[in-house]
Write a protein that binds this DNA or RNA. Structure first.
Lengths: 182, 182
DNA sequence: CCCGAATGAGACGCGGGTGTCTCACGAAGG
DNA sequence: CCTTCGTGAGACACCCGCGTCTCATTCGGG
């Protein structure tokens, strides 16, 4: 009988990922519960978004942990990270745009995640794997952009979901130019 | 005395690019006119966004024309396109997210622009300049993502504006991996 | 079996933003 | 000088979504 808070959160994520302007009523309907019950679990829309942000950050941190960014080559670590990001990509895209749209002090968890990813790029540069003429901050933002684009591209059916990892990894690592080596 | 419609449009673009949720009143204030006058020129918020979309598409088409995507190598054409996209990047980022957020029949101008850019990537693939394991549709979406990320990254001060072209061109063409050649 | 807790449905007022209207003002032109 | 037109400021009603509340219902535990 009792509503599974996490289940509601996931269904909200799924809906808002598709339709960022969804109403509290729509979110409730999507979760198969009443609007009143939704409010009992999340004080308001802000609280819901905040909870979604917490969820996203938690999962992203988990993905970062699982990718073990410190181990092996930076290149392989990046591959693992991107592979592990797939389940969170949709929610990530939603949160990134949401954060971009409304200014205001943002969740500090983002800073930590930014730092961890930037550190990976920095490590790759220091080891000589990555080029050094592009800063870690831009590479991080670029990765976000590619992940978001991929999520939307797949969601809208312009590209196949099974290509997610390959699309991002290959473009980010090797670029669009046909390499002589390979 | 008469309000310059185009000037209003540009100031609205500048504002909404920074704060996508800006009120009609804020848009009017930013343009230095009254809300009533704003309504006299644009029937409503929807009409304003639509006009902004028209403007963005017009400028994007102009940038595409100017880049002469059919001439020279696809690589150079891509460089020219990215260089020419800089002034529109902010507005483009706004329109892209706006389009992603609200579903509904979108401006058909986007299809034409998508097609023109995808054709460029296809040309590069056929000429052997670009790799063929990534589809033109994805490459187009990826370019959009990078442009948007760059616009935001610069807007938020994480990266320098003067690097705009270099950041995107280099990452998109060569990727993050340090190439042996060069 | 009964009671308590949680839920769904609906009603209600509120607030912010929108779209419309009126009115006074000032500039440009006859 | 006077008329006309576009404008700014404000008032107003309206709509939509939010947040709160009530009440009947139902599920689950004691």
């Amino acid at each position: 009988m009792t509503v599974d808070r996490d289940r509601v959160l996931r269904s909200a994520a799924a809906l808002l990922t598709r339709k960022a302007t969804a109403t509290m009523d729509e979110v409730a309907k999507a979760a198969g519960i009443g609007r009143a019950t939704l409010h009992r679990h999340f004080a308001g829309r802000d609280a819901l978004i905040k909870a979604l942000e917490d969820l996203g950050i938690r999962e992203l941190d988990a993905a970062l942990d699982k990718a073990a960014l410190d181990e092996g080559t930076a290149t392989d670590a990046l591959r693992r990270l991107i592979a592990g990001s797939e389940p969170v990509a949709g929610l990530f895209a939603f949160l990134i745009t949401e954060n971009q749209l409304f200014e205001g002090e943002q969740h500090q968890g983002w800073d930590r995640i930014d730092a961890r990813i930037a550190a990976l790029f920095r490590r790759g540069q220091e080891s000589g794997e990555f080029r050094i003429d592009l800063g870690p901050a831009w590479l991080t933002d670029a990765l976000y952009g590619l992940v978001t684009s991929a999520a939307w591209s797949i969601q809208d059916g312009r590209t196949a979901g099974k290509d997610y990892q390959h699309m991002i990894v290959e473009l980010l690592l090797g670029g669009v130019r046909r390499s002589v080596e390979k």
